[in-house]
Design a protein around this nucleic acid. Sequence first.
RNA 1: GCGCCCGUAGCUCAGCUGGAUAGAGCGGCUGCCUUCUAAGCAGCGGGUCGGAGGUUCGAAUCCUCCCGGGCGUGCCA
Length: 557
Amino acid sequence: MARELIKEALSKALAAAREAGEVPGDLGVEAELRPPRDRRWGDISTNLPMVIASAANLNPRAVAQAMVARLDLPEEVVQKVEVAGAGFINFTLSPEWLRGVVRRVLTEGENYGRSDAGGGKKLLLEFVSANPTGPLAVVQGRAAAIGDTLANLLAHTGWRVSREYYVNDATNSTQVRRFAETLEARYLQHFGREAAVPEDGYQGDYVVEMAEELVKEQGERYLDMEPEERLSALTEYSLQRIVESQRRDMQAFGIEFDTWFLESSLYENHEVEATMDALKAGGYTYEAEGALWLRATELGDEQDHVLVRRDGRPSYLAADIAYHRNKFERGFDRLVDIWGPDHHGHITRLKAGVQALGYDAGRFEILIHQIVRLFRGSEMVRMSKRAGDIVPLSGLVDDVGKDAARFFFLMQSMESHLDFDLELAKKQAADNPVYYVQYAHARICSILRSAEEKGISLPEIEAVDLDLLGEPEELELMRKLADLPEEISQAAARYEPHRMTRYARELASVFHVFYTKCRVLGDDPALTGARLAMVTAARTALGIVLRILGVSAPERM
RNA sequence: GCGCCCGUAGCUCAGCUGGAUAGAGCGGCUGCCUUCUAAGCAGCGGGUCGGAGGUUCGAAUCCUCCCGGGCGUGCCA
């Protein structure tokens, strides 16, 4: 890779400059090596001279000159090196090297851009994990898109990734109980019995619908049961139905979890108990006001938290600590959770619990994504499962399609609020950026079909004269292809999946420009062969990116 | 009150571990289809980077304070 070469040449030049006494000894500085802000300045740029100058109180341009004078880089890789601005060194890659990228993409195929940064280590990525008290909402779609794409990125960079969905199906959960009570009320109401939805119950119509289905399936079976028995039966029924619907929603959204982890299993296997015992043994608990508390304040939290309620039911936190203990015990090297913004307050206490158990909190990361605000035109839609004004993810997918929805969710960084206008998403489906990218892919496929019809086939890569590729539009396209491995590494390492939608649009853009300017299937067979090789490489790269995003790569549009 | 996220073009947002002339998409206006898909391309406009101080050779980026929006701060999950 050109980056590595440049990096090495820089450090050698720096060492030589030090020996000559032009630059002081080890300053412990770290410099960047990245594309300059304006690509006309070159392909790769470093601020190293400025960083050195800053630490040693020298003139940055002088340091840059001293280093450039000692740089030793092969001409077939780097065409031009220059000092620019306040003290940058800019490198322009040679056309020869760029052409080599085409060969590399064609050789590596689907594996182009892979790295072994993760070293085959095991990583558990938990995401969505919505309460089983209603259909998945739009905000969970955001979590799903972020999580799935991040999982793809991490897998692409050498991690063994497991996708996991945590099902809060514990029957001692207050919310699960409220939901069952709501269903019960709706069920009884169907038969004209006096029954009210609990004050903090679920107002949504979907509960009424579920009750109707229940009547259809089971008739009057629960009508005259003992209340506690009925409630427990309805709890089981609703949990099963809702989890099933969530699973269907995720499938329709193109996401397959490796594991649907049941909170109830933690109770069945006495892991919650065992976890509480371990916390007690470690001296991190105390009893007060009839409850068992976690000494979270000793572990960086602002307040202590209840682990076991006065009535003996473990809290959500207790189960969650047990759950993460379970994750560590399953042998994962790294744990990553993606949570919604409403769980932000939960981070410190869970980490406190994990630390109290003696696990390395540095191997456990929690990412918070921000909310999705839904608009119908200019009117904001308030969403609350309990109030019943819910816009289901399935409805969104039906409206705008899986591809557009996933792409849209990933166009913004996760820490930024996302405004989603339902009307606009529907009305402008054809203008959605996802089509811009998919169209580039379809166009390439169209060229390849056309070539086939004309009896032109892609020559063996050894037989292609890539030196014929020299138009500015061609060089731009190859430059962008060359960027892909670094884009993937950065997006994965920084947990920033939204970078990939940006890159996808850039890659599509340089292709569209090339397409407008240059003809692939022309009169010159050699040039045609070279361009066929290049657009085939572009298709491969686009395909990789779209697969990472979970967006389909259509051959026709 | 305290904690976290956000405030950048008309709209939606990138850029934020300090670096060059602050970018993109959408919307607006103007051109481009005999030839591999016009769901495309080219061009024109568009900015007190919420405000005020500070650190620095250099601040959208770091620090302090303030303003505005959102979320959290349960023996709910």
